[in-house]
Simulated assay, not measured.
Amino acid sequence: MSAGGRKTACVTGGNGYIASALIKMLLQKGYSVKTTVRDPDDMEKNSHLIDLQSLGPLEIFRAELDIDGSFDEAVAGCDYAFLVAAPMNLNPENPEKDVVEPAVRGTLNVMKSCVRAGSVKRVILTSSIAAVSSRPLQGDGHVLDEESWSDVEFLRAFVKSGAWAYPVSKVLLEKEACRFALENGISLVTLCPVVTVGAAPTPKVQTSIPIILSLLSGDETMIETMKQIEMATGSIPMVHVDDLCRAEIFVAEEESARGRYICCSLNTTAKEIARFLAVTYPQYNVNIDRVADLGDRPRICVSSAKLIGEGFEYRYKTLEQIYDDVVDYAKATGILPA
Results as ranks from 00 to 15, higher is better:
residue 315 R to A: 11
residue 229 I to H: 00
residue 179 R to C: 11
residue 52 L to N: 04
residue 148 S to N: 14
residue 314 Y to N: 05
residue 223 I to L: 03
residue 97 K to Y: 10
residue 284 Y to G: 07
residue 59 E to T: 11
residue 278 A to Y: 07
residue 199 A to F: 08
residue 287 N to D: 10
residue 213 L to V: 13
residue 219 D to Y: 02
residue 95 P to V: 10
residue 159 V to K: 14
residue 109 N to R: 01
residue 294 L to A: 08
residue 157 A to T: 12
residue 240 H to M: 00
residue 127 S to I: 05
residue 306 K to F: 04
residue 308 I to K: 12
residue 237 P to A: 07
residue 137 L to K: 10
residue 314 Y to V: 06
residue 40 P to H: 05
residue 124 I to W: 01
residue 326 V to E: 08
residue 96 E to S: 08
residue 121 K to S: 15
residue 252 A to K: 08
residue 229 I to T: 04
residue 69 G to I: 13
residue 151 D to R: 12
residue 73 E to Q: 13
residue 30 G to T: 06
residue 265 S to E: 08
residue 257 A to N: 09
residue 287 N to I: 00
residue 87 P to K: 03
residue 84 V to Q: 03
residue 140 D to Q: 02
residue 268 T to I: 00
residue 107 T to C: 02
residue 161 S to M: 09
residue 9 A to Y: 07
residue 233 T to I: 14
residue 312 F to Q: 05
residue 87 P to S: 01
residue 329 Y to N: 05
residue 83 L to V: 03
residue 316 Y to R: 09
residue 147 E to W: 11
residue 236 I to Y: 12
residue 99 V to R: 08
residue 282 P to F: 04
residue 165 A to K: 14
residue 113 S to I: 02
residue 252 A to F: 14
residue 302 V to K: 12
residue 61 F to H: 15
residue 149 W to Q: 11
residue 221 T to E: 13
residue 176 E to R: 07
residue 88 M to W: 13
residue 120 V to T: 00
residue 262 I to P: 06
residue 183 E to F: 05
residue 46 N to Q: 04
residue 39 D to A: 11
residue 100 V to R: 12
residue 69 G to M: 10
residue 252 A to W: 08
residue 337 P to S: 10
residue 64 E to V: 08
residue 277 L to H: 10
residue 12 T to S: 14
residue 18 I to H: 08
residue 323 Y to F: 09
residue 288 I to N: 03
residue 111 M to G: 01
residue 297 R to L: 12
residue 223 I to W: 07
residue 331 K to N: 00
residue 236 I to T: 08
residue 317 K to H: 06
residue 28 Q to F: 04
residue 243 D to M: 00
residue 315 R to P: 00
residue 286 V to F: 05
residue 213 L to Q: 09
residue 316 Y to N: 10
residue 184 N to T: 05
residue 247 A to R: 07
residue 295 G to S: 02
residue 99 V to N: 11
residue 148 S to H: 02
residue 198 G to M: 09
residue 80 Y to A: 02
residue 22 L to N: 01
residue 45 K to Q: 15
residue 184 N to K: 13
residue 55 L to D: 02
residue 219 D to S: 15
residue 30 G to M: 06
